[in-house]
């Protein structure tokens, strides 16, 4: 059995967002492998180490920095990468992204070759949480998103999905999409020898014409939504800050809760 992980390069969690006019200024951003994707790759590699999976493929779409995200995944232990890079892709929304990823996946043999499709639940930049479900829909297969546990048994899987206030235990037949969240595993730090090995692992590159996708089907032109503008959220102002005897500060807090917040 083979597994595929779809990964994304995203701004580091510490990144301060800057705007030029009403557009995002990407010049000073440091990019990392999306943390949720790390859970997905780690899970796939663990399934390989457990002898359940014999190949882990990593697919990423994005500019040249996506290659670094793929290398990071290879350093965790994935076997090879596919990088879809094309200037026409700039500005693609989730639906276009899902369609392009599916074409690349099909080019690699698709569901005939890969039965476990792993994603991070969400990319911490766009935060749409949508591509895993969209790809499952395009491929006509089930998906279990937001999982904290994944057991593979033959062509069946048991996956535990976290929902508000509880858990759903899903039983599914493979092939299936799984979207990982924190708690699924503790991703390893890639060791130095693994980093060196990752350098030698192959990465296949595709442009959209390699995938048979016309340029007007992707990017801003092909998308169903467009970002009209970016603005910075209103800065929260520091409010009142008090110090003193517990009885006295609690009294002031009660006053705040009653008169300002209207809680009591």
């Amino acid at each position: 059995m083979k597994a595929v992980c779809f990964v994304k390069s995203v701004p580091d969690t510490e990144t301060r967002v800057r705007l030029t006019g009403n557009r995002l200024d990407k010049s000073e951003i440091k990019y990392i492998l999306n943390p949720y994707c790390e859970f997905a790759v780690e899970e796939a590699v663990r399934k390989k180490e457990a002898g359940i999976v014999d190949e882990v493929l990593v697919i990423s779409m994005g500019p040249s920095r996506a290659q670094e995200a793929i290398r990071s995944a290879l350093a965790i232990g994935a076997d090879r990468g596919v990088h879809i890079e094309d200037d026409n892709l700039d500005g693609s929304d989730a639906i276009v992204t899902a369609r392009v990823l599916v074409e690349a996946f099909k080019k690699e043999g698709g569901l005939d070759n890969y039965q476990i499709l792993l994603f991070g639940l969400r990319a911490i930049d766009g935060d749409t949480w949508s591509v895993p479900s969209m790809i499952a829909e395009l491929l006509g297969i089930p998906a279990v998103t937001n999982i904290v546990k994944l057991d593979i048994n033959g062509n069946k899987a048991i996956a535990i999905r976290m929902v508000e206030g509880g858990e759903e235990v899903f039983e599914v037949e493979l092939p299936c999409v799984f979207a990982a969240r924190k708690g699924l595993n503790e991703p390893r730090y890639p060791s130095l020898p693994s980093i060196m090995k990752a350098k030698k692992k192959p990465i296949t590159r595709y442009t959209i014409s390699d995938l048979g996708i016309p340029s007007d089907a992707v990017g801003k032109v092909g998308s169903f939504t467009e970002v009209l503008e970016y603005t910075l959220p209103p800065q929260r102002q520091a409010g009142k800050k008090v110090e003193g005897e517990p009885e006295q500060v609690v009294e002031e807090l009660i006053k705040f809760l009653r008169e300002v917040a209207n809680i009591i």
Binding site: E68, S72, A75, Y189, L192, I195
Partner: peptide, 15 residues
Amino acid sequence: TEEQKMLKDMVRRFA
């Protein structure tokens, strides 16, 4: 180099 960057990121995170 790309590997040195990955190494630096990894060690920083670990540390």
